[in-house]
């Protein structure tokens, strides 16, 4: 798993910040390590010595934002890397090797927005490509004609929210599909017929909030489901009750509780996936 350590850093540190405990780690040490993962191209790798990818570039930028250290970045250099990955049809590839996916559209748009560099890409084309991935059920897939998936929906709705283009979403139709993800136990799944998983507490819930349909699910039952997934001895959260815990599901569980306004957890922004105070600092403190 060391190839995606950058994502791990983002998950762990955001969860800590939401719980008000980001000081538990030495920020200088983390930042020094992050900067060692940056390439000449401007992109970041998942770990030292690995190749850069959009996935890790956003995580690196997000972690620096958490620590209020975006100033250590050469923002134009990072923005050049990201904007260089846009294709003629508006879509984005994840790296130089050409795989296209709406997830990469979100990563690019979110990253550039945090860096105040959205003008570096063709936003209109980027939005049109995302809209071309919309399905009859109101959801979105990886590419045009791809199956709807709650994770992809978060990415597409998030990118549309950041670019002020949510009018392209059929909110009632998508809201319907999303709220049907809640199963009897109160947990949410990511696709029809699947078991519930804590990580969808984030993806489904944040999407519902962005399209203003969150009151369509039963919040109390979801809170109970997430709390049931916590290992009360070690503290972490797992995908389902009684499973082994990990940092990925711990972050999504905490983030889900944050969206549900659970006491003691800071508020998280549903589009940027960063604490609201961090997002406010990025956009309103100049």
């Amino acid at each position: 798993m060391e190839h995606l350590r950058m994502n791990g850093a983002y998950w762990g540190l955001t969860a800590l910040d939401l719980l008000g405990k980001i000081d538990a780690l030495d920020s200088n040490e983390v930042i020094e390590w992050i900067m060692k993962c940056q390439h000449e191209s401007g992109g970041f790798a998942g770990n030292i010595g690995h190749d850069p990818h959009m996935l890790y570039t956003l995580s690196a930028v997000q972690v620096l934002a958490l620590f209020d250290k975006l100033n250590v970045l050469d923002a134009d250099k990072v923005a050049n890397y990201v904007s260089g990955l846009q294709n003629d049809d508006g879509s984005f590839t994840g790296d130089e090797w050409g795989e296209v996916d709406t997830r990469f559209s979100y990563l690019a748009i979110c990253c550039l927005s945090i860096l105040h560099r959205l003008d570096k890409i063709n936003v209109e084309k980027a939005v049109n490509y995302i809209v071309s991935c919309k399905n009859v059920d109101g959801g979105f897939g990886c590419t045009p004609g791809g199956e709807s998936h709650a994770g992809q929906i978060f990415c597409c709705v998030g990118a549309l929210a950041v670019t002020g283009s949510l009018h392209h979403v059929d909110k009632d139709l998508l809201g319907w599909w999303l709220c049907e993800r809640q199963v009897k136990s109160g947990g949410l799944n990511g696709r029809p017929e699947k078991l519930p998983d804590v990580c969808y507490s984030w993806w489904v819930l944040s999407s519902l909030i962005m399209i203003d349909r969150v009151h369509w699910i039963n919040k109390d039952k979801l809170v109970k489901f997430i709390l049931n997934c916590q290992d009360t001895e070690n503290g972490g959260i797992s995908d389902r009750p009684e499973d082994a815990v990990d940092v990925f599901h711990t972050y999504f569980g905490v983030a889900g509780l944050s969206l549900l306004e659970y006491p003691g957890v800071k508020a998280i922004d549903p589009a940027y996936a960063l604490p609201v105070d961090v997002v406010n600092r990025i956009f309103f403190q100049k």
């Binding site: 190839h3 995606l4 790798a45 690995h50 190749d51 990818h53 790296d95 090797w97």
Partner: peptide, 12 residues
């Protein structure tokens, strides 16, 4: 380690 992206890239 199936998702070691840098190794796939080197082959590409």
């Amino acid at each position: 380690s199936c998702d070691f992206g840098t190794a796939w890239n080197s082959r590409k």
